[in-house]
Design a protein around this nucleic acid. Structure first.
Lengths: 150, 150
DNA sequence: CTTTCTGCAAAAGCTTTGCAGGGTG
DNA sequence: CACCCTGCAAAGCTTTTGCAGAAAG
């Protein structure tokens, strides 16, 4: 069974209706090889389906994030978020301070159980997010590196 | 020497002018016992200095962040940021999914050197941010816990 | 005196919402 | 056929910017 169908099925189970727009939005997320912002995703979709509104994209991304099907990644300092399908294992992101692209790090150095011991009773840990900032291979090679981590 | 003076001195060294507004903004940051948003900080300031503009607060927070005097914390999902003085050691934050308040965790489980080895040459790590999400002591005790980590 | 900073106002994003019509189950 | 979803348009928020005057060094 395809990933698309898996996701559709999950939505159906939770009582969501399956509309053409939803299919297209999920397909586009599956297809893209970068993590898009809501606007980028919408632009991509509009190349073939110009009738789909940006608000529909936002509404559905919100829905998918709530269902745990999509992850929302905060870029450092930037006020826009990028989205990725939450398909694989728990992982983190390497975010380039120069070009802003995010790539995956299939490794998590955070042991929540251990941390919970450190924290004690004052806080109940449910999850965490970790972003690594730096320079990707391409930008590392540039002669004029921009300002360092702010 | 007071913290205020330390910061003022640092600004002076970098060629920034010391204006009454700057003093007040820094004092207010020092005084508040929570991490404020730009708007909250401005409201606090305006109780005693109603003539200071929100845009001035934004401009100065930006300046202080760039100089490494202030840290900017992303709240999960929220589109507003909160600010804290970067006085002590490198540390992270516990962010309550219910009430949204952030508290400090004086411990960092992330070994950047070790991570750099894992990542290899494809990315040069400069820094990282880690936020822990969950419920604070107060909200943990509530009978009706809200939805879990989105 | 020169340069930086402020306050005002307006603009500029990104994201959300009200509403009426249309599609899904 | 009831309810959910879409598209449109407008509004809402946070944050940024242009500009002229004021202040700091």
């Amino acid at each position: 069974m395809s990933l698309l169908n898996d996701i559709i099925e999950k939505l159906r189970t939770k009582g969501c209706k399956i509309t053409p727009q939803r299919r297209i939005i999920i397909q586009s997320l599956l297809k893209l090889d970068k993590f898009p912002t809501a606007l980028e995703l919408c632009n991509d979709i509009r190349q073939t389906n110009p009738e789909i509104g940006l608000d529909t994209v936002y509404r559905n991304l919100g829905l998918l994030v709530n269902m745990g099907i999509v992850n929302q990644i905060n870029l450092h300092g930037k006020d826009t978020k990028v989205f990725e399908l939450a398909l694989g294992e728990h992982h983190h992101h390497l975010i380039c301070l120069n070009c802003g692209t995010a790539s995956c790090l299939d490794y998590c150095p955070v042991d929540e159980k251990e941390l919970q011991k450190t924290v004690g009773l004052r806080f109940e840990i449910i999850g965490h997010s970790l972003e690594l900032y730096g320079y990707c291979q391409k930008c590392k090679a540039l002669t004029s590196l921009p300002q360092r981590l702010k």
